[in-house]
Design a protein around this nucleic acid. Structure first.
Length: 365
DNA sequence: CGGGTGTTTCCTGCTT
DNA sequence: TAAGCAGGAAACACCC
């Protein structure tokens, strides 16, 4: 629970940075749709934003249990107004509670305090607080990114002799990548007050992976145990073997595995990961969007960011959209996805996929 | 240990 | 020209 507030801060930054002027704005259709549909869990950034103000309310984007008393009051007032509820029927002396206390109340208790509005408040509160596993994971990624960046900042000198320094470099690359303009919302999420502080030192961009992106990852075995001469190495770079190169040596892997959980089951499939982001609009804005919900057609808005998230999930910091999309294309054969011709970054769920239809989503929740 | 599955990585060629 | 798409090939991780 201790990290919850950090998470909410991350989410807050994530969400607010997502709507920086230079960023792709959320799809108007989507917003309209979401705003109209009370059955859907509404995104933090929409439902909780008072329409009459241009500034954000103080509780905006924060997790409810982190709200202060005044934030709780503000939130309640917002819903009173939104629901055109007669505020005189509420004993506001009972509203003198912080977010944590608010979250402890049952539906009945809120009903007692707020009358008919109690149900509404309870539902809205639990829309925000019920974070599914996958989203929880995404949030934990954001949190760990923040943590790793902090540790990087603290230890300004990297221990290059350490056998794990490759990992540090990977993290540096990722940190740099995530703070690129294209991924501005991550940079905000990672470090609320030090955004961009790591930029400018690494030249590697995952966008260039085809022309050497992952080549620069330098097959650790080759680099570690085969001290090529410069010429030999360049020659080797020119003509790589086809297929997937061997991964890290066992000793390096052991080093990396100290971070892994003991039992790492196969986990969810890529298409399920994509689906789960899509069906939780409070997190998917800016990453993916539905083009046609009924038909299961969706679009990648931030392809590289989704790829990075997927890579994080699979503990693979060199994941790119190109690789992810190859995996997506394998789904065509299995009819988990269907082709959408002529439209870039657009995919469609096929008959062998499930769990994305509105009826299915409602059943599951 | 081998086979199956689901990716991951790299590649060439094509399209937008 | 860059980005994305298509799909072959091979390696890899995990499960049974």
């Amino acid at each position: 629970m201790a990290g919850s507030c950090e998470i909410s801060n991350l989410l807050s930054n994530y969400i607010s940075a997502m709507y920086q002027p230079e960023e792709v704005p959320p799809d108007p259709d989507l917003l309209t749709h979401l705003g109209d549909d009370d059955n859907l869990p509404l995104p933090l950034s929409n439902i909780h934003m008072p329409a009459e103000t241009t500034g954000k309310p103080t509780w905006y984007g924060e997790m409810p249990h982190c709200w202060s008393k005044s934030q709780v009051l503000e939130w309640i007032s917002y819903h009173v107004e939104k629901n055109k509820y007669d505020a005189s029927a509420i004993d506001f002396s009972c509203c003198n509670m912080d977010g944590y206390t608010l979250c402890q109340y049952t539906r009945d208790q809120l009903g007692l305090i707020f009358g008919p509005l109690g149900d509404e408040l309870y539902d809205r509160l639990h829309e925000i607080t019920s974070v599914p596993d996958e989203l929880g994971w995404i949030m934990s990624v954001l949190r760990s990114e923040e943590a790793s960046q902090e540790s990087l900042l603290e230890s300004s000198s990297l221990e290059l002799g350490n056998s794990c320094s490759q990992e540090y470099l990977e993290e540096m690359k990722l940190a740099n990548f995530l703070s690129q303009p294209d991924l501005g919302y991550f940079s905000g999420a990672m470090s609320p007050d030090s955004s961009g502080s790591l930029t400018g030192t690494m030249s590697q961009s995952p966008h260039s992976q085809d022309s050497g992106g992952s080549d620069l990852d330098l097959d650790p075995i080759d680099m570690k145990h085969c001290p090529f001469s410069d010429g030999d190495y360049k020659k080797d770079l020119k003509k790589r073997k086809r297929g997937r190169p061997r991964k890290v040596s066992k000793e390096n892997r052991d080093c990396l595995e100290t971070k892994k959980s003991k039992h790492s089951p196969r986990g969810i499939h890529l298409w399920e990961f994509i689906r789960d982001i899509l069906i939780h609009p409070e997190m998917n804005e800016g990453l993916l969007k539905w083009e046609d919900r009924r038909e299961g057609i969706f679009k990648f808005l931030r392809s590289e960011a989704v790829a990075q998230l997927w890579g994080q999930k699979k503990k693979n910091s060199s994941m790119t959209y190109e690789k992810l999309s190859r995996a997506m294309r394998y789904y065509y054969k299995r009819e988990i996805l269907e082709r959408v011709d002529g439209r870039r970054l657009v995919y469609k769920f096929g008959k062998n996929s499930s769990g994305w239809k509105e009826e299915e989503v409602q059943e599951r929740s």
